[in-house]
Each structure stands twice: as C-alpha cells, then as structure tokens.
C-alpha cells in the first residue's frame, strides 16, 4: 500500500458517499444518471467476486463491501424509492449503456491475462469501469448545468483515477515485475475521459460562476 493508492481509495469512497448522502438527505437524484450507477454496480459485482474466496486484507474486504453496498444502494434509491425516483430525469438519461456492457464483455473475452471465469469477469469490470462515467457526462451536457454535489462527485471520481495512475507509477519503480498493461491502459483511458470535465470544472471554479 502506498499513499497514492490510499488517497485514491479514500477519494473514491468519498465520491460514492457524497452521492449517496446527497440522494438520501435531499431525497433527490436530479442530474444523476442511474445508468452510470448501474454500470458501477456491475463493475463492483464482477470485480469483487473473489471477496469470499481470496482474502487480501481487512482493509481490502471492508472497502469492497463499502463499494458494493453504496453502488447498489444508490441504484435502489433511484429505481425504487418513490420520492427519489420522481426526481429522476428519465427523458434525458437515455444513453444505451447495455451496448457498453456487451462490448466490454466481448472485449474481455478477446483480451485478458488468463482465460478463466474470474479473470475474464475481472477484466470485463476494468473495461466497464473505464466507460461507466459516459452516461453521466452525456446527461451533464444535456442538462447544461450541474448542481455542486454532482459536480463534486464527478470531480472526486476523476481524482481517484488520477491518484491511481500515480500509484501505478510508484509501484512500477518500487516493485519488480509490477506490470499490468490492461489495468494501466483502461485506467488511463478512464482518466482521459474526465479531462474535459476537469477543464470546465476548473474554469467555472476560477471564474466563480455556475458550471454549465
């Protein structure tokens, strides 16, 4: 464990807790894409299948439970909680995210490190996580504005990915044989997707005007 990865995990945990807190407190999910949240739930479900079979550490297991619990709770709130569901913007959140699931599954069947059930699903979860934010970014552009909590959510998610890249650089130089091309490439693609959001987020912060 290094400071970059710990900071990255904490930032990631805060991003999902900020979103869950927003939805739970103000009973609204305005501006949030349920499709992105469903993709994240699938990412965690397919990545943490080994949660009971391979124990890494208390921290690792605890964080997996936090991510699984929070992502499924957010989907539950947005789909089944009456008050919250009413604020869901169905007309604008129209990204065909099942195509993302299908293409990531096909890609994982083609490109993986080992052809085993767990490894292919783990690789699938990496590909899917890289594109999971797309429905949210599309919804953001459609609604042309963003309330600050959703902005913070996306900002923290981007921060977690940036810190993970620093973690891989650190591990590459400190641990022999630490080479995971698939993880690195998917992580880089995912971080680049946030780049233009960061640009506009920074502009709105610098000019101290509403992000739109």
């Amino acid at each position: 464990m290094n400071i970059f990865r710990l900071a990255g995990d904490m930032t990631h945990m805060f991003s999902v807790l900020v979103l869950l807190l927003k939805i739970h407190t103000i009973k609204s999910c305005a501006g949030v894409s349920v499709k992105t949240q469903e993709l994240y739930a699938i990412v965690f479900a397919t990545r943490y299948l080994d949660i009971f079979t391979s124990f890494v550490s208390i921290y690792n297991t605890f964080m997996k439970l936090v991510f699984l619990g929070s992502s499924f709770s957010i989907v539950w709130y947005m789909r089944y909680h009456k008050a919250v569901h009413r604020t869901y913007d169905r007309e604008q959140d129209t990204f065909r995210h099942w195509f993302l699931v299908l293409s990531c599954l096909l890609l994982a069947l083609l490109i993986h490190e080992k052809f085993t059930f767990l490894e292919v699903l783990w690789t699938f979860s990496l590909y899917l996580e890289a594109v999971a934010i797309l429905p949210q970014l599309v919804l953001l552009q459609r609604t042309r504005n963003i309330d600050n909590l959703t902005g913070q959510y996306i900002f923290l998610l981007g921060g977690y990915r940036g810190l993970y890249i620093l973690n891989w650089i650190y591990r590459y130089f400190t641990e022999p044989h630490f080479v995971h091309w698939i993880t690195w490439i998917t992580g880089l693609v995912q971080t680049l997707l946030y780049a233009d959001f960061f640009y506009y987020y920074f502009l709105s912060w610098k000019n101290n005007k509403k992000l739109n």
Binding site: R5, D9, H12, D50, S54, V56, S57, N60, M63, K64, F67, E113, K114, W122, Y164, N167, H177, F178, H180, T183
Partner: peptide, 10 residues
C-alpha cells in the same frame, strides 16, 4: 507469497 497478478488493488 502473492503471485504478481494478485488482485491486491480495489
């Protein structure tokens, strides 16, 4: 000893 591909990251 953990194999290098061990999934120790989240």
């Amino acid at each position: 000893s953990k194999d290098p591909s061990a999934k120790d990251e989240l």
